Amino acid sequence: MKIEEEIKQTAFRNEYHKAYINLLYTSNFLQQEHGSMLKPFGITSPQFNVLRILRGQYPKPATVSLLIERMLDKTSNASRIVDKLEAKELVTRKQCPNDRRTVDVLITEKGLDLLKQLDALDNDNKSGGIYNLTEDETRELNRMLDKIRD
């Protein structure tokens, strides 16, 4: 559905304004879909992001500062997210043996198993509407989004 129909607005200042509104709307749409997919598993999008970062580091631990650096949402409170994941036994936290001021965060087997389930679900559902694009269109979209951030 076109952005004009989605937000019931027929006029925009120009195509740049329309594209900007379209990006914001689509971003929120994708975030809501992603949140709905994660809800039955009892985790949020920022928690999922932290788990993915830790899986990428595995078997090496990560520090909270590394998590903050690599998170998609820079406004998230990584320490609080790690607290919640630790309470769910999806990560462990230990004081770094080399630097007592630093805490090492490591994904658990339970966390790795959860990510495997979510990977399978994503592969089965082809969620997020992104699969409505061809591979070439997706490549072009990635190029344009990178250009916007440059």
Rank of each mutant, 00 (worst) to 15 (best):
K84C: 13
L66D: 08
S79R: 09
S79M: 09
A78S: 07
T92D: 02
Q95M: 06
D99E: 08
L90E: 02
V82P: 10
D83M: 13
L85N: 05
R101M: 07
R70E: 14
K74N: 08
D73C: 14
E89G: 07
L90R: 06
L67E: 02
D73S: 13
S79Y: 06
C96R: 03
L85S: 07
D73N: 14
R93H: 03
R100C: 05
L66H: 15
S79P: 01
E86Q: 08
Q95G: 00
S76M: 10
K94D: 01
C96Y: 05
R101I: 02
N98T: 12
R101G: 04
R80E: 11
L72N: 12
S76R: 11
P97E: 01
I81H: 14
A87M: 05
A87T: 09
V82E: 03
T75Y: 14
P97W: 04
L67S: 04
R100E: 14
L72Q: 11
R100P: 11
D83T: 11
L67T: 08
V91Q: 00
K94R: 12
Q95A: 03
N98E: 04
L67R: 02
S79L: 06
A87K: 09
A78F: 04
R100A: 07
D83V: 10
E69V: 04
K88C: 03
K94I: 05
N77W: 07
D99W: 04
P97D: 06
C96K: 04
R100T: 11
R80C: 05
R80H: 06
T75C: 09
D99V: 09
D83A: 15
K94T: 07
R80F: 12
E89T: 03
D73W: 02
N77I: 12
L90P: 01
A87V: 07
I68G: 10
D99A: 10
K84P: 09
V91R: 03
K88H: 02
L85P: 03
T92E: 09
D83G: 10
L72A: 14
L85Y: 00
I81R: 13
Q95R: 07
K84L: 13
A87P: 05
A78D: 02
L66W: 11
R100Y: 05
L66E: 15
A87F: 06
N98V: 09
E89N: 06
K74P: 06
A87G: 08
N77L: 06
R101Q: 04
L72D: 14
